[in-house]
Every structure is written in C-alpha cells, then in structure tokens.
C-alpha cells in the first residue's frame, strides 16, 4: 500500500513570489545605467586590491588567534576558584566589551601619546633592562591586530566559558577519579567536549572579524576597504570599487562558512549517532518529498 504525503500548495506559491522579487532586484542591478560593470571587472583583480585582501586576511587570522588564545585564558581565569583571577577576568571583559572596537583601534594607533617608550624591567619605577621607542614595536599593523584581537578576546572568553560550562560535571569527576590533574582534565576531557558549543559562535566571530578589519583603515592600514577607498578617491568610481570590495568580502566569508561547517562536523563526533545532514542532503529532502510505504520503517 502507498501512503500519499500531504501537499503544500502554499509553499509553492510563496516560493514563486519570492523568486520573482529576487529576479527583479538582480535584473535592476545588472541593467542599471549608473553602474559600470566593466569598471568592476577591471578593478576586481587589481594589484592594490589583491594586496588589500592579503592584509585583511593577515589581520583576521592574527586577531582571531590572539582573541582565541587570550579568550581561553580569560575563560579559565573567570571560572577559577582564585577570586583575584576571576575578578581580573571579569574587569577585562567589562572594559573591552563595554567600549567600541573603533575607539580601541584608534587608541592603539595613538598609544605613543600615552607611553612614548616601551620598557621591560622591575615595575613601579625600578631598574629597566630593555627599552624601545613604542612606535617601532607597535607599528600601525601591530596596533590594528592589538585593537581587534584584545577586543575579540573579551567575546571569545564568554563563548569559551559557555562551552566549558556546557560539559557535564560528571566528566570532570570521572577524570578526577582516574587521577588526572586539573590541566589534563581541561585539555583532554573538558575542552574537546566544549568545542561542540564553542565552534559555531567562533565561526561567526571569524566572519564578523573579517568585516570588522575594515575599521582599521582609520589608522591608515591599507587593507581591502582602504585600498578601494584610495582608488576611488582618485578615479571617483565609488560604487564600482565598493562593489569590488564587497565581492571579495563575500568570497572570503563564503570560504570561511564552508570551513566552519566541516570543523563543526569534526567536533560533532561522538555526540550524536549520525552526523548532521549536509546542505545538499537538506535541499534534496526539501525538494523531493519522501514517499513512505506503510510497513516500512520510517527513517
């Protein structure tokens, strides 16, 4: 006997309406006389733009690395039994999350106004062993990484903390009963399981970071957007160059999304009986309704 699935005429109507709307927007963009797509094509592989992408990628990777490493440290401090540790962590998060990242980037770009020299030695005015002009250590690029990374750490700390707290306390207990040390338990038992909760929002953060790097043009670091701005400042092809920059941002975020998807699948190991369906599976299931035969085991 064959079971007939429910029909969904409403779904088809809504889909048709949305497709018409989208097609209209695309058509208008493609045929607009004010937009010169040949100009876009001309600039999209320009050397300065490509250099800008490299700087943007470097900034994103370094700032995320700084953010993740410092974020894990802050999360562990926040959960520490030592009240000084948890308070310092809490203050850090309060400060760096409570002020705009734009301001923080400006601050690091102008840090030499506050501390002209960077010294290593005994604190509180003791002897100095090493000293350097701060502008040589904190170059504009370093300032950009610090501004983005230190801000990111505050957000990553909360993400990591949520991940750690999501792990069943029985796991820690079992590891303790086996004689594992605190550090071993964190590295080998708790963090790997916390990753399942940590990875998806971290992917979001990475994608968000890629776009936030555009802010550092304010201190004169020539990343992607800054390169585009410098070019249209000369040739006045403002819209076309903004589109060039947007195309590249979209390309990179798409690549990052795909990467995130596979990292997520990797850490889902052991947490559910089957791995989640790939987007292709999902699309196929949506388009081709399954005809179940009575008596067959539903899947």
């Amino acid at each position: 006997m064959r079971a007939v699935p429910v029909r969904h005429p409403g779904r088809w109507l809504a889909a048709a309406a949305v497709i018409v709307l989208v097609a209209d927007v695309v058509y208008s963009l493609a045929t607009a006389r004010t937009l010169h797509w040949d100009v876009v094509r001309y600039w999209v592989f320009d050397g300065r733009i490509l250099n800008g992408i490299v700087v943007t990628l470097k900034l994103t990777i370094l700032a995320m690395l700084l953010g993740v490493v410092l974020g894990v440290a802050l999360a562990v401090m926040r959960l520490s039994a030592n009240p000084v540790m948890s308070t310092v962590s809490r203050l850090y998060i309060w400060f760096f999350r409570g002020t705009p990242v734009y301001v923080q980037i400006l601050f690091w770009g102008n840090v030499s106004l506050l501390f002209p020299r960077l010294s290593i030695g005994i604190p509180f005015g003791g002897p100095t062993w090493l000293s350097a002009d701060i502008n040589q250590v904190v170059t504009l690029f370093v300032a950009a990484v610090l501004g983005l990374g230190l801000n990111e750490a505050a957000y990553m700390a909360e993400i990591v903390r949520a991940g750690i707290m999501s792990v069943d306390p029985g796991q820690t207990e079992a590891a303790q009963a086996l004689g594992m040390s605190r550090g071993q338990i964190l590295r080998r038992v708790v963090l790997p399981q916390a990753m399942r909760v940590i990875v998806p929002p971290t992917g979001n953060e990475a994608i968000s970071m890629l776009k936030t790097t555009s802010l550092v043009s304010v201190i004169g670091v020539s990343e992607l957007l800054d390169s585009a701005i410098q070019i249209y400042a000369v040739n006045y092809r403002t819209l076309e160059l903004l589109i060039v920059a947007s195309i590249w941002y979209l390309v990179v975020t798409s690549i990052l999304s795909v990467g995130q998807y596979f990292v997520e699948r990797r850490f889902a190991r052991g947490s559910s009986r089957g791995l989640p369906p790939t987007p292709l599976h999902r699309l196929r299931r949506m388009l081709i309704p399954r005809h179940t035969t009575v008596g067959e085991r539903p899947r």
Partner: peptide, 8 residues
C-alpha cells in the same frame, strides 16, 4: 551514569 568520555 557511566561518565565515559564521549569524544573517545
């Protein structure tokens, strides 16, 4: 509750 490590 067993408390096996689920990722191993």
């Amino acid at each position: 509750r067993f408390n096996l490590f689920p990722h191993m």
